[in-house]
Structure formats: C-alpha cells, structure tokens
Design a protein around this nucleic acid. Sequence first.
DNA 1: AAAGAGATGGTCT
DNA 2: GACCATCTCTTTT
Length: 189
Amino acid sequence: MGALGRPWFERDAPVVAPELLNKLLVAQVGGVVCSGRIVETEAYTEDDPASHTFTGRTDRNAVMFGSAGHLYVYLSYGIHHCLNVVTGRQGDGQAVLLRALRPVTGLETMRIRRNGRPDAELANGPGKLAQALGVSLTQNGADLLGPTASGVAIIDDGVAAPLEPAIGPRIGISKATATPWRFRVPLTT
DNA sequence: AAAGAGATGGTCT
DNA sequence: GACCATCTCTTTT
C-alpha cells in the first residue's frame, strides 16, 4: 500500500505499461471519490509514428514531454477524453494510455456519469473510464504521485502486476499497428 | 453477431 | 480541410 516514487515512472513506456496493470487509479472530482483497477494499457514513445509526440512538441502534447508521473489528457474525436501517464526522463515524450479499469469504489457515481450503462461497460474503454471518473482537460498535467492534491492519483495497494500479461497490438491507430504495446490483465478464472 | 455510420471539435498541414 | 490513441446507435447477416 502506498504511493509509487517518481523514479518508478522514469523508464520507457513499454516497460512501465505492463507494470501499471493492477494499480489503482483514484480520482476525486466534485467531492466524490471514484477509483478503479487498471486492467489495460498501451505504450506510446517519441520515436513511435502512432504517438502524439512523434512530430515534436506542441501545445497539446507538452505534458508528455514533462516529468514522469503526471497526467496527460487529450480530447479524442472531439467527444471523449483519454488519460495517459507520462513516463520516461524529462523531455522524453513518452506516455502510457489507460485503456480500461475495473471499477472499485464510487460505483453509484460512475453509473450516473455513464448514463445508467451496465456495470461491465462503466470503464471498459479509454473514453469510458475518463467519463466514469469525471476526469477531463481540467486535470491535464496533474501530478499523479502527490498526496491527492490534484484530485487524481495512482496508488499501489499491494496487488502485483500479472506475471504474464496478455500482449497484443494497439487499437484505434493507423500507424505502427504491428507494434505489440497493448497490455491486459489476463482473464481471471 | 458483425458491420457501418454519425457525432463532434481540437490540432495540424 | 483532413485527420484522428472513441463510443453508441442502427442496419445487415
């Protein structure tokens, strides 16, 4: 139980992505605390054609070039928000996209935010989990390691990352589609 | 069960 | 003006 140190994140995204599995993402928005266990991630690096940072630093992706352990939020398709954890050394331009959570606390609020959708569909996608937690561009750049000062944090509650995560190609991209940088917690029996 | 299309807006060429 | 790190609803097998 406890916080992860910043050095823990100062490694390449493809290394951090599988290790983020089973960590808790906690968000306090509007006085309500919601949390979920991270069950699917994707890695994006600076020399990766599918990454927002591939063509260099811009206003939008500036956070990705910042220090590790911060939250990079962007608007996807003009409708949804997607949450990323910045990794690597300062100036690197790497991040891990959080693709799915298993809801742990704040289910009632999540159901409302997700418009009464079935529990299985509360946070089983990158846009869905952002909506369920109530996180949007307001939290872009938030420090995920501080004592909840930002309202969003990643916590290690002692559940280890899976020894053999399911690995596959990333989803929803048109470049570098063969790179196997998507990681999932294996289906439990 | 699978495939298709519309929504919707910031970012970049 | 094109392109999306998506989601949901509708239409078609």
